[in-house]
Simulated scan of single mutants.
Amino acid sequence: MSKKKINKLIIGTNNKGKLREIKSLLPKSIKIYSTSEFSLKSPTENGKTFKENSLIKSKYFSKKTGLICLADDSGLEIDFLDKSPGIYSARWGGKHGDFVKAIRRVYKELNKKDKNWKNKKIKARFICAISISYLNKKIACVVGKVEGYISHKPKGKNGFGYDPIFIPVKKRKTFAEMKPSQKYKMDHRYKAFKKIRKFL
């Protein structure tokens, strides 16, 4: 299967920001379908790791459509919060994935742990697991990471998810303050894509 170049695939996400970013990273020669074209809801993600959840999604959407599926599972780990929210990153935003709410919860948890957390450098990383599956068969699964720390307040209007509170190492701006073209060249999804490109 993987010897042959993939010429069409479905991106297994209902997150518009994620869909946009993945599309921008894929070779232009691939015809891309989105889950909304098939009116598909996302499966229950009950894996214990980003990799497991990514595979649950890519296999599910592939079986539903008969297309090869590329799916990612990603999230934010904050060392000071014992690596939370981690695989529950989207769930911290509640049923509707409201990231304003999720970001508020991050600050609430940091405050609970230490009122003076703003005087410390709160280390964090974004992790992205990308998998490609065809029906029940895994073609590939890789992980990309970007290290950084938590901003004292949300900044910037670009990006999505936790981007307004994440400052990558050696940068002063949050992901949400950067131009998408700048962020897409350095984030966790880009790093995972570099590893998976040979399968495309």
Results as ranks from 00 to 15, higher is better:
42 S>P: 11
102 A>Q: 10
143 V>M: 11
2 S>I: 12
29 S>P: 07
8 K>M: 09
77 E>I: 06
183 K>G: 01
132 I>R: 03
26 L>N: 02
73 D>W: 01
165 I>Y: 04
138 K>A: 06
4 K>C: 01
8 K>Q: 08
152 H>L: 07
53 N>I: 08
127 I>V: 10
189 R>H: 01
132 I>D: 01
81 L>E: 03
124 A>S: 13
102 A>Y: 10
191 K>P: 02
62 S>P: 12
63 K>H: 06
173 K>A: 14
169 V>N: 15
165 I>Q: 00
121 K>L: 13
185 K>T: 15
158 N>I: 02
59 K>P: 13
116 N>L: 13
36 S>N: 15
128 C>N: 08
120 K>E: 13
86 G>R: 08
80 F>V: 15
120 K>P: 09
168 P>L: 10
171 K>W: 09
149 Y>H: 15
28 K>T: 05
46 N>C: 13
9 L>F: 15
32 I>R: 00
87 I>M: 12
83 K>F: 08
187 D>K: 03
114 D>M: 04
113 K>W: 06
102 A>E: 05
195 K>A: 06
55 L>D: 04
130 I>L: 15
23 K>M: 07
107 Y>D: 05
75 G>C: 11
12 G>Q: 03
136 N>T: 11
96 H>G: 15
67 L>D: 06
104 R>Y: 07
150 I>N: 02
152 H>R: 15
176 A>C: 00
102 A>F: 13
98 D>H: 01
133 S>K: 06
115 K>E: 02
132 I>G: 03
29 S>V: 11
76 L>C: 14
162 Y>C: 11
159 G>W: 09
115 K>R: 09
118 K>R: 03
95 K>M: 14
199 F>E: 01
87 I>G: 10
150 I>P: 00
105 R>S: 14
85 P>G: 09
187 D>L: 08
55 L>A: 06
162 Y>W: 15
27 P>I: 02
138 K>H: 08
179 K>P: 14
16 K>N: 13
144 G>T: 07
97 G>W: 05
116 N>A: 11
129 A>Q: 05
199 F>S: 03
115 K>Q: 00
43 P>A: 12
43 P>I: 12
103 I>M: 10
165 I>M: 04
198 K>E: 12
180 P>M: 07
91 R>A: 15
110 L>A: 04
37 E>R: 01
37 E>W: 05
127 I>G: 03
13 T>C: 08
50 F>E: 06
188 H>V: 00
3 K>W: 11
14 N>K: 00
190 Y>I: 13
200 L>W: 02
132 I>C: 06
197 R>T: 04
33 Y>H: 14
20 R>T: 12
133 S>A: 14
164 P>K: 04
190 Y>D: 11
112 K>G: 07
175 F>I: 14
122 I>C: 00
70 L>I: 05
106 V>M: 04
